[in-house]
Design a protein around this nucleic acid. Structure first.
Ligand code: MN
Ligand code: MN
Lengths: 189, 189
DNA sequence: TCTGGATCCACA
DNA sequence: TGTG
DNA sequence: GATCCAGA
């Protein structure tokens, strides 16, 4: 017996005219919608262990697969935050499995080749890879995804005004210079 | 038999006039200097396991304690980066211990009360605490530190490049680069 | 085309 | 508020 | 989380 966790293979072309050119938010939004609508996964599943400790947030996506009189609970983290954030995601899933709240953990992230054209230092498969062994005795799947195609002429994915962005409102102290936001849309999908 | 890892207790007053007001770089600089100069720790120790995998950087601080015919290798991470970065630090130290390259791992970070007045989302003891159990079977010490005193009238710790100014660091197997230290004064200490 | 930050954002 |  | 920064 086996289940199809999900199958989301979209054709997706990315502007590759410059390193770190594209933002990352619209990518995950697309994937979450598919998981929820097409595959009935749930968003933001809290772990009991963290609820009990009254500290820490939920898991990105969650689904219980039922069959043969048993349940397989799967926690999935879609990672497009900073690579360090991927360590937190992995640790959170490990916590859930260590406490028998999950039977399987999954992390979905860009491969290096893709991340090169996304916001600097976002999570990528290759950089987390040396740490996969920390999940050696835990059911875990690490998935790296790439764009289907690169094309310097398609519209770039817009970025937000977080962190060190020049569009940040605070920017260290006084001088507030906010640039107008662009439409949060991109190419196909 | 026991060793004093280090004892750095400085009086340190922080401007508490506003949330997230202070930068964080000068704090660690001070602590590193003390560990290197007073206690002979080394900076930036690469782990063999990561060197072999040709991926991943070094451990912040490292020292080998010798006595009774054995060596106790201690890896220490001073964490003032984003809380997610603390997960990477923990994972890296776990990797070192899992591979018998370290006998003890230490993470030094602000307690929540202190982090409240530092750059938003920096590492803090309370937020990493729920994950301590991932190091349950590994020799590990988590240390939270606070300011000694809060005073809305002392000068705030600068953020950004204002707080920078590289000085010399002592590496385990490398040369020592010398550069003049910058003045570090926020209140007393 | 490496790597650990430091700093700010959005929304509970 | 706290957390990704 | 998401954006950039600084140094080797
Ligand atoms: Mn999440
Ligand atoms: Mn996520």
């Amino acid at each position: 017996m086996f289940f199809r966790l999900a199958k989301i293979i979209k054709n997706f072309t990315l502007n590759n005219s410059k390193k770190n050119l594209n933002g990352v938010v619209p990518i995950k939004d697309q994937c979450y919608k598919e998981l929820e609508i097409t595959y009935d996964w749930y968003r933001e599943k809290p772990l009991n262990i963290l609820t009990q400790k009254k500290k820490g947030g939920p898991i990105d996506v969650y689904k219980e697969f039922k069959g043969d009189g048993r349940v397989v609970r799967v926690g999935l983290e879609f990672e497009t935050g900073n690579i360090s954030s991927a360590h937190r995601s992995m640790n959170k899933l490990l916590l859930g499995m260590n406490h028998q709240e999950l039977e399987l953990g999954v992390i979905l992230m860009p491969v290096y080749a893709l991340s090169y054209y996304l916001t600097d230092r976002v999570s990528n498969y290759e950089e987390l890879e040396p740490y996969f062994e920390l999940a050696e005795y835990t059911p875990f799947i690490f998935i790296g995804f790439n764009a289907n195609q690169f094309d310097p002429s398609v519209e770039a994915i817009p970025k937000g005004k977080d962190g060190m962005s020049k569009r940040s409102i605070k920017k260290m102290d006084g001088k507030i210079i906010i640039k107008p936001p662009h439409s949060f849309h991109h190419g196909d999908n």
